[in-house]
């Protein structure tokens, strides 16, 4: 799907990827995390154009879709008027992490010759069940817990082990969000020795 070819359509799509890469770097004020640096340093190893990198792009894009949703969910939480400091600051910090995940995933997808999924214009959230600060935090905790499971399920299916490492790095971050949210809610912060 991403093979180099003399087919003019393929050249056009490469040009489009280059253009989106340029605009990405122009707009990105991203502070690179350790995982991001490892990924970009290993860029040569991220060979474009084979079936396994196409599969990896698809896995990354699904994760990217979920990260876009998380950014939007924290936005809804922050704007709900239900969060007071310090919970509000926590939500904004966690949202910032999800934005950094979005940037890293999008950048990696472009590096692999793919096209990053964009955020949807609209997301459905169970806003009718969010009536208090605790409701909002519990909703965020559910999303973070799900995200941990999703990355756990992605780690073993990446063809490229650097990508598995990057996913594990994000998994760790989201597990910390989950634990802190549980703690704020007065629940046992770390309920078990393993995540699933």
């Amino acid at each position: 799907m991403f093979a180099f070819s003399q087919d003019p359509r393929a050249r056009n799509s490469e040009a489009a990827v280059d253009a989106s890469r340029r605009s990405f770097f122009n707009h990105s004020g991203l502070l690179l995390s350790g995982a991001a640096i490892a990924l970009l340093a290993g860029r040569e190893a991220l060979a474009k154009g084979n079936a396994s990198s196409a599969a990896d792009v698809s896995i990354l894009n699904t994760a990217l879709g979920a990260e876009h949703e998380a950014v939007a969910a924290y936005q809804v939480g922050a704007e709900s008027g239900l969060l007071q400091k310090p919970a509000l600051d926590l939500a904004l910090t966690f949202q910032g992490h999800h934005k950094a995940h979005v940037e890293l995933l999008a950048k990696t997808i472009i590096t692999l010759g793919g096209k990053p999924a964009e955020a949807r214009k609209q997301y459905t959230f169970p806003t009718d069940t969010l009536k208090s600060q605790a409701d909002v935090l519990r909703f965020a905790a559910t999303l973070e817990k799900g995200a941990v499971s999703a990355y756990l399920g992605a780690v073993p299916v990446f063809g490229n082990r650097d990508l598995a490492k990057a996913a594990a790095s994000i998994l760790g971050d989201e597990a910390m969000h989950w634990a802190v949210l549980r703690n704020v809610l007065g629940e046992t912060p770390v309920p078990a020795a393993f995540v699933s």
Binding site: G65, G146, V148, A150, S196
Partner: peptide, 15 residues
């Protein structure tokens, strides 16, 4: 099913 709720909901489309 909580593991699926990173991406799915019963009644509406997500990821």
């Amino acid at each position: 099913y909580e593991r699926c709720q990173a991406c799915h909901a019963l009644a509406y489309d997500r990821t």
